[in-house]
Amino acid sequence: MVPLTWYLVLAAGLFCIGVFGALARKNAVGVLMGVELMLNAVNINLVAFWRHTAVGEMTGQLFAIFVITVAAAEAAVGLALFIAIYRQRRTVNVEEIDTMKG
């Protein structure tokens, strides 16, 4: 069997790639894809821990399913937002969306 650590390192790698996408991409959809990768990394962790430490309880898988649910909701709302913003500003460049500036 593949040791737990391998999965964790894989997840860490995937997470960091996702972080890079979320923080460095100029396009909002690109940012969203980065976030999806991060969530998937979390799921790998949850399932790997379930398999290797607590295979008797289903908590790990249950939580992974909740994460998928939330990701689906997030993607739906996020993309709707992008479309709305695009309609208004003709851009989804994250850098131009800076209304948080006081």
Binding site: G13, C16, L23, A24, K26, N27, G30, N93
Partner: peptide, 19 residues
């Protein structure tokens, strides 16, 4: 359009460090 914003270098560095 450029792919990345201007902070991509820093992000890459710190993402690698985090990994």
């Amino acid at each position: 359009q450029p792919r990345f914003n201007e902070q991509w270098g820093v992000v890459g560095g710190f993402a690698a460090l985090l990994f």
